[in-house]
C-alpha cells in the first residue's frame, strides 16, 4: 500500500533531523563495531546479536517518537535500544555483566531496558515481546494517553502464533500500535524460502488481519523516515495499528561478531549486493550530492563525538565492578 500524502522532508528546513538521523545511525554502528573489536577478548560473555547493516530503520524511528512513546524489541535489540534513547553506558555495562548495567548484569545483551526512555525491554524468545508491545498500547488506551507503542519484530516472528494473536487483538481494539518488521531474510541460518511461501509479501498478511500496512526499503533512511513520520501521525490521531515491513540485511553472523558468508547458507555475492545498499553510506552519499561541504564537514565532527563517547562507554564498563555474588539471589520477587 502506498501512503498517500507522505510528509516529505523539507531539505532546507529539516537539516537538524538529517544530522540526528546520521548521529543515531552512525552511533549504533560505532557501538556494534566496537563490540566486534572487543568480543574476541572474552570479557563480553553473553550471546550478542549485532545490528550492523540494520541501523537505518531505528534511526528513522528515533526522529518521530519521544520517550513517552513505548518501544519493545527482540534478541537483536541494540539498535532499537540506542535509537529509543537507551543509556549507552548502561547498555555496554550490561554486556560486560556489570552492576551498573541497565539490568544490573542479570539480563545481558538480549535483555536491555530503559524504562525512563520508554524502551520497555527486549526478549530472547522469538515472538515473545510482540504481545507485550500490544499490552503497552492497551495501557495507553486505558489511561487515555495519545502516545504509541512500537513493536520491533523480524521476519522469523511472522511464523510465530503470538504475532497473529497480538495483531488480531491490536486491530480488534484499534490500539495505537506500530509493528516494525525488519525483514532481514534469515532466521538464524534458515532463509525465508524454507520458512514461508516464496511468493509471499509479509506485509500482506498483516493487511489481511486488518492492519494498515506499508512496505519500505530499510536501507533508504530518508524514505523510512518519511514513511514512519506519516504513519506515526496517523496512529496518534487514532488510525489503529500499522504494520510496516522494511527490507534489511544483517551483515554479520546471526549471533556473534564474525562474518559467516563462507559457511554456505548465503553467498558472498548476496552479501556484497546488500552491502552496496549500506544505509549509512547511501545516506552520506545523498548528503554529499545535495548539501554544501559545511554539512559534510559537520558529519565528521559528529563522528568524532561518537567515537569518543563509545570509547568512554567501553572503558567505563570494563572498569566497573561486577555485582556482588549475593545479588544472584535478590530481585526474584518485587517486594
Amino acid at each position: 500500500m502506498d501512503i498517500k500524502d507522505k510528509t516529505k522532508l523539507d531539505l532546507a528546513l529539516d537539516k537538524e533531523i538529517l544530522f540526528n538521523i546520521y548521529y543515531v545511525m552512525r552511533r549504533i554502528r560505532a557501538v556494534e563495531e566496537k563490540i566486534v573489536e572487543e568480543y574476541p577478548k572474552k570479557q563480553i560473555r553473553c550471546p550478542t546479536h549485532l545490528s550492523i547493516g540494520q541501523e537505518g530503520v531505528p534511526a528513522a524511528l528515533a526522529q518521530v517518537v519521544t520517550k513517552h512513546d513505548y518501544a519493545i524489541s527482540t534478541h537483536r535489540g541494540h539498535a532499537h535500544y540506542l535509537a529509543k534513547g537507551g543509556d549507552l553506558d548502561k547498555m555496554i555495562a550490561e554486556l560486560y555483566g556489570k552492576e551498573c548495567g541497565c539490568s544490573k548484569g542479570k539480563g545481558g545483551s538480549m535483555h536491555l531496558i530503559d524504562v525512563e526512555q520508554g524502551f520497555m525491554g527486549t526478549s530472547a524468545i522469538v515472538g515473545n515481546s510482540i504481545p507485550l508491545g500490544v499490552g503497552l498500547a492497551l495501557s495507553l488506551e486505558l489511561k487515555g494517553l495519545k502516545n504509541i507503542s512500537c513493536i520491533f519484530l523480524g521476519d522469523g516472528a511472522i511464523e510465530e502464533g503470538s504475532f497473529y494473536e497480538s495483531l488480531n487483538f491490536a486491530v480488534l481494539r484499534k490500539l495505537p500500535t506500530l509493528f516494525i518488521c525488519e525483514n532481514n531474510l534469515y532466521s538464524v541460518y534458515s532463509p525465508l524460502d524454507v520458512r514461508q511461501p516464496i511468493d509471499r509479501q509479509i506485509h500482506t498478511i498483516a493487511e489481511a488481519v486488518g492492519a494498515k500496512t506499508a512496505c519500505c526499503d530499510g536501507n533508504n533512511v530518508i524514505d523510512s523516515y518519511e514513511t514512519l513520520n506519516t504513519i506515526c501521525q496517523e496512529i496518534r490521531s487514532g488510525s489503529g495499528p500499522w504494520f510496516v515491513e522494511f527490507e534489511t540485511y544483517r551483515w554479520r553472523e546471526h549471533c556473534g561478531y564474525n562474518y559467516d558468508n563462507d559457511i554456505g547458507y548465503r553467498t558472498e555475492e548476496e552479501y556484497e549486493t546488500w552491502k552496496r545498499r549500506d544505509p549509512i553510506k547511501t545516506f552520506v552519499d545523498y548528503l554529499k550530492n545535495n548539501y554544501s561541504i559545511e554539512v559534510v564537514n559537520k558529519l565528521e565532527q559528529i563522528d568524532q563525538n561518537i567515537f569518543k563517547e563509545v570509547e568512554e562507554a567501553f572503558e567505563k564498563a570494563k572498569k566497573a565492578s561486577y555485582p556482588d555474588p549475593s545479588h544472584a539471589y535478590t530481585s526474584i520477587y518485587c517486594q
Binding site: 513505548y70 504481545p131 499490552g135 503497552l136
Partner: peptide, 13 residues
C-alpha cells in the same frame, strides 16, 4: 499466549 503477553505488557506500566 498473546493475551497473557498483553496483560504482562500492560502490567509493566
Amino acid at each position: 499466549n498473546a493475551m497473557t503477553g498483553v496483560g504482562i505488557g500492560a502490567s509493566m506500566v
